[in-house]
Amino acid sequence: MNANFSGTLSPWTTISSISQSAWSPASGVQGASDGYVASFSETNRDVDTGYGEIYQEIFIPSVAGSSSYTVTVYIRFQISRFQARGGGSISITYGLFNPATNSWVCDQSNTYQGTTGWTSYSVSCSISVSGSYRLRAYITVTNTRTFTIYIDYLYISVYSSSSAVLNVYNRDSQPYYARLMLNSVTGLNPQNLFCEIGIGDSQPIQIRSGQIVAGETSEVVLSSGSFTPINVKCLTTSRGSYTLTLTLRYCTVPGGNGVCVYYPLTIVLSSG
C-alpha cells in the first residue's frame, strides 16, 4: 500500500471544503517516520466549520477459498499548530470507507482541542465482500483560526478470514523443510498490486506496488502429519485480475539440500 507521502500526494485524492486551506506534501518534519508527511493547514483565517479529506481507492480482491477478510487501517498523525476561537476542535476520522453505500465499513474518530504529539491508532473490522473501497482520513475543523495537521502514514492490511487459502499436508513420517518462491506476477496493472504470501509462520513473500520486495518466504518445518497453511493477503489499487505463479519447495534437509520437490502453485486474484 502506498502509505507514505514521499514528496508527493499522488496517488492520493485530497479534498478541502475550506477555500484557502490545502493539502500539501511536506518534508523534513521532525518525528515523521520517513521525513515526509501530508499536511493540512490554515493560518490566521477564521473557519467556523470545514473539512479536509484524503483517501486512496483500493480494491480488495477475491481469493479462492477465502470468504471474508480482516481489515486493519493504521494512521499516525500530529496536530502541530492549533489556535481556536473558543470551543474550537479538530476531529479526525479514519478507516475503510465504502463509496457505493457512502458509509464507513469501519472507522474510528478522535477529537482534539489543542495540539498533540505524534499519535498512532489502528482500527480493525471484518468484511465479507471483495471490491472497491477507500482508505480514508476525514478531518473536521470547528471554530478554528490556525491549525496544521500532519499525517505521517495511512495504510491498510488485509487478511483473509482463515488466513489460509490452502494447506500443505505432510503425510510422511519425517519432517520436510519448505518455502514458497514467487516466479511471476502478471496482470493489467501489476504496479497496483500489494501482497503478502506466506507459509505457516514464515517471513512472507512481499509485493509492493507490483515490485517484488521479497521473492521467497523463509523456510518453515513441515512436521510429520501436520497441515501448514498458505496465507494470501492481497489488495490492489485498481480493478483487474492478477495471476501469481509460485513454487512450493520442500526438502529433506534445511537449506535446499538433500532431496527437494517442487510443486507449481497458481493464485488468481480478481478485484472489482
Binding site: 510422511d172 534437509v253 539440500n257 538433500g258
Partner: peptide, 15 residues
Amino acid sequence: GNNANKADLGAGNSI
C-alpha cells in the same frame, strides 16, 4: 555424494 544414503522421500526410504 554428501546426500548418499540420507533420507529420501517416503517413509523409510533413503537415497
